[in-house]
């Protein structure tokens, strides 16, 4: 707190010291010549690859240019995006519920959540999607009513759910299992003292979760969920198992089957996937910034200590004392 004690001169603000002969004592940063050489070599390789690729007939760039904004392709791209957004929204919502169930003291909820994770993480998503496609074979009708009585309503499964909806359900239910574990890790990462402080203030469980725990766990949750979104964008190419064939990859493959030009069409699909991923990454960057509020920022208090501390070692010792003191009294009830 004693910011007035200016015993040591602050490095940088004073004029540079000089030797007896008047030459300045200058410090030079470590140089990295090997790094620069490597960068040049890699750039040369990259340039060679691009030059070669531009002229290679197999890539068929004119065909790429022709199909990149082809109506069928851009429609398929939108459908891919829709599949991603819908299944992620449902997956996240269900995943949060599963995570909270898994952490609840209620053993019924706990086991239910565990069982769900066991099934949906334990089987390949491709197999799950195939099963969803066979839903109307396994359950030809959806009956609504009470058990052991005649159902009030009987609907043919195929009329209720179309293949797009089945694809979304298949992707979402699989995703929820993974999101559940991410959210659980996020909630567990928040210091227990936070929940205690909120509880001691008279906040309800829901208020504590929504105002204190979840906002802090977001910092841990967002990067892996961003990962999951990008992963989902590409997993949508598996819904051909349902079979649903109007998304980007299957559409490109179907067109190439007619035109006999698979390479340019897969390049077209890749460019679209890359474009979407780039946009998602930018979105993730801003979300992460939003939830980093108050955490991981420069600490002016510490800067003052460095600038005013004549002997930095004293400050270090103080820190250690504080840490060991905390462990001592905090460890036992």
């Amino acid at each position: 707190m004693s910011a007035e004690t200016r015993s040591g001169s602050v490095a940088g603000s004073a004029p540079p010291p000089t030797d007896d002969d008047g030459t300045a004592i200058r410090a030079v940063k470590l140089r990295h010549p090997i790094r620069n050489i490597f960068a040049v070599i890699i750039l040369l390789f990259a340039a060679a690859f691009v030059y070669d690729a531009a002229l290679r007939p197999a890539y068929n760039w004119p065909a790429v240019a022709k199909y990149i904004f082809d109506r069928r392709i851009s429609e398929a791209a939108v459908i891919t995006l829709e599949l991603t957004v819908y299944s992620m929204l449902i997956g996240v919502a269900l995943g949060v519920v599963l995570a909270v169930m898994r952490l609840s003291p209620n053993p019924v909820f706990k086991s239910l959540s565990w069982f769900y994770l066991w099934v949906f993480r334990g089987t390949p998503v491709y197999v799950q999607l195939t099963f969803w496609g066979l839903l109307s074979v396994i359950y030809p009708t959806i009956d609504i009513g009470l058990p052991f009585l005649n159902p009030f309503i009987t609907l043919p499964t195929g009329d209720v759910l179309n293949v797009f909806q089945l694809a979304v359900i298949g992707l979402a239910l699989n995703e929820a299992a993974y999101i559940a574990e991410i959210v659980r890790a996020g909630i567990l990462s928040v210091d227990h003292g936070q929940e205690e402080a909120a509880t001691a203030l008279g906040m309800s469980w829901f208020q504590t979760m929504s105002r204190v725990i979840i906002p802090q766990s977001m910092r841990v949750i967002i990067p892996p969920v961003g990962n999951e979104v990008i992963s989902m964008l590409k997993t949508t190419s598996l819904v051909t198992a349902v079979p649903f064939s109007f998304e980007l990859f299957t559409r490109s493959r179907d067109i190439s089957a007619e035109t006999f030009t698979p390479i340019p069409l897969f390049l077209v699909a890749s460019i679209w996937y890359l474009a979407f991923t780039s946009i998602l990454m930018i979105g993730q960057y801003f979300l992460e910034k939003r939830f980093a509020r108050g955490i991981g920022v420069a600490q002016p208090e510490k800067k003052v200590t460095v600038a005013t501390g004549a002997v930095p070692v004293v400050g270090d010792e103080g820190d250690d004392d504080q840490k060991s003191g905390g462990v001592h009294s905090g460890g036992t009830p």
């Binding site: 003292g193 205690e196 402080a197 509880t199 001691a200 008279g202 309800s204 905390g326 009294s329 905090g330």
Partner: peptide, 26 residues
């Protein structure tokens, strides 16, 4: 019930060893 206990806690302030301020709030 938790709701009833929360009602009682409103009137009892508590200060912790490790402060437990909410780091995402000013």
């Amino acid at each position: 019930k938790p709701r009833e206990a929360a009602l009682q806690r409103r009137d009892i302030g508590m200060v912790f060893q490790r402060f437990n301020l909410f780091p995402h709030m000013t």
